[in-house]
C-alpha cells in the first residue's frame, strides 16, 4: 500500500472515530465558543470595534481549539497503544504524519468556517459575496496549521506534562500562521484581494516548509524507542 493510500486510510480512521465519539469536536467547539465570547466581552460592546477584531477573535479561538483537537486525535492512537500496532505494520511511517495532517486539516477547516458563521451572527459581520473567499482560505490555513501541529503533537506525545507542554511548544511556532491567517481574512473581509493573495502565499510557503520538515523528521520524532 503506497504512502498516500495509507495516509488516507488513517485519516479516514480518525474521522470515523471522531464521528462516533465526538470528543474532539465537542471540546474544540466548547473551547472556541468560550474563547469567542470571552474575547468579545473583553473587546467591549462597540460593534465597529468588535467587527475589526473579528479575524483575531476567530483565530485565537481556532488556535486553542486546534490544541484540543490535535491532543484528542493523538490520544485515539495512544489509548490501547494502537500506535505501536500502526508503527510496526506500516512500511512507510510517514503515512501516520500525513494521515494526521489530513484529518486535522479537515477538522480545523470545518471548525474555522463554523467560527466564521458564529462570528457573523454574534458580531454582525457584513458578509458580502466576497466573503466566500473565506472558504478556500479556511482550507489553506487549516492545512498550514495542521502541518505544524501534527509534527509537534508527535514530539510531545509521551512527554511529561503534555497538556501544558503542547501549547507552549506549538503556539509560538504557529505565530506566522496566525499572523497570515488573521491578515488574509481581514483582507478578504475588507475586499482587499491583493493583500489577501499575498498572505495566502505566505500560508502556502509555511505549509510547504512544515510539511517538508514533517515528512523528513516524523519518523525520528515519533519513534517509540
Amino acid at each position: 500500500m503506497n504512502l498516500a493510500a495509507a495516509a488516507i486510510a488513517l485519516a479516514r480512521k480518525d474521522l470515523l472515530v471522531e464521528l462516533r465519539a465526538r470528543q474532539a469536536i465537542a471540546s474544540a467547539v466548547a473551547l472556541a465558543a468560550v474563547a469567542l465570547v470571552l474575547v468579545g466581552l473583553a473587546g467591549g460592546p462597540d460593534p465597529d470595534r468588535l467587527r475589526a477584531l473579528a479575524p483575531a477573535l476567530v483565530w485565537i479561538a481556532l488556535l486553542y481549539a486546534s490544541i484540543a483537537v490535535a491532543d484528542r486525535l493523538e490520544r485515539i492512537d495512544r489509548a490501547d497503544d494502537a500506535f505501536s500496532g500502526l508503527w510496526l505494520v506500516l512500511p512507510d511511517r510517514r503515512a501516520m504524519y500525513l494521515g494526521r495532517v489530513i484529518s486535522l486539516a479537515i477538522f480545523l477547516a470545518v471548525l474555522q468556517l463554523t467560527l466564521w458563521m458564529a462570528a457573523a451572527l454574534l458580531l454582525d459581520l457584513p458578509l458580502a459575496i466576497d466573503a466566500l473567499a473565506l472558504v478556500p482560505l479556511a482550507a489553506l490555513s487549516a492545512l498550514t496549521a495542521a502541518t505544524a501541529t501534527a509534527l509537534v503533537v508527535a514530539l510531545v506525545a509521551d512527554a511529561g506534562h503534555r497538556p501544558l507542554l503542547l501549547p507552549v511548544a506549538l503556539l509560538p511556532l504557529l505565530v506566522p500562521t496566525f499572523l497570515a491567517g488573521v491578515q488574509a481574512s481581514s483582507a478578504v473581509l475588507d475586499s482587499r484581494a491583493g493583500d489577501a493573495a499575498t498572505w495566502a502565499a505566505a500560508l502556502l510557503i509555511e505549509a510547504a516548509l512544515f510539511s517538508g520538515l514533517g515528512l523528513l523528521t516524523y519518523e525520528t520524532a515519533a519513534s517509540p524507542d
Binding site: L155, V175, Q183
Partner: peptide, 22 residues
C-alpha cells in the same frame, strides 16, 4: 526530540521575521 524541535524552530525564524516585517 530536541534536535527535531530545534530544527523546526530555527527554520521557522525567517518566516517569523518576514511575516512580522510584512
Amino acid at each position: 526530540l530536541a534536535a527535531v524541535f530545534g530544527t523546526v524552530a530555527f527554520l521557522n525564524v525567517p518566516i517569523v521575521h518576514f511575516s512580522v516585517l510584512w
